[in-house]
């Protein structure tokens, strides 16, 4: 009994699969080895799906531009920011961050000599492959 669904399915059969490809075709025996091979350029992997512009990835922090106003700490919903009184800068724990970019919105930034407008100390980068075993690893704490 042919149904509309069957037609849809048969049409799909002759198209390219819609699924995003995994980096490699089948799960490798040794992931770390594979990563090293990829880094050395011996193996090519399917690249990750590109992110759109204005994507909210890992927060990038530039201490040079930080004036220590603590505004980001006040608005951060996840309490991911910590103030360091000695340096009057902040420390950001990426493991707690929820990528809402509110801190970027409130950050007043600092005008370095010779610049016309202040540049924000915080901005969202496009980096999203940030999983780690240790939430305090070097990659996940910014100061």
């Amino acid at each position: 009994m042919p149904t509309k669904m069957m037609m849809v399915l048969i049409k799909q059969m002759f198209r390219k699969p819609y699924t995003n490809r995994f980096p490699v075709k089948y799960a490798p025996k040794d992931v770390t080895g594979l990563i090293q091979k990829v880094l050395r350029g011996e193996v090519k992997i399917h690249p990750p799906v590109p992110v759109p512009e204005d994507f909210r990835g890992k927060l990038a922090y530039d201490p040079e531009r930080c004036i220590g106003c603590k505004m980001c700490i006040r608005v951060c919903p996840a309490n991911a920011m910590e103030f360091i009184p000695e340096t009057r800068k902040i420390r950001h724990y990426v493991a707690r961050c929820m990528f809402c970019a509110l801190c970027v919105d409130v950050c007043p930034g600092k005008k370095l000599p010779g610049e016309e407008a202040p540049v924000k100390a915080l901005k969202m980068s496009e980096e999203f492959l940030i999983a780690d075993y240790d939430k305090y690893s070097k990659n996940l704490v910014e100061e």
Binding site: I10, Q12, P17, T19
Partner: peptide, 13 residues
């Protein structure tokens, strides 16, 4: 495999 291709998936080996 064929069922996966019918549903626009890659499917298992």
């Amino acid at each position: 495999k064929l069922s996966a291709r019918l549903t626009s998936r890659i499917g298992p080996p």
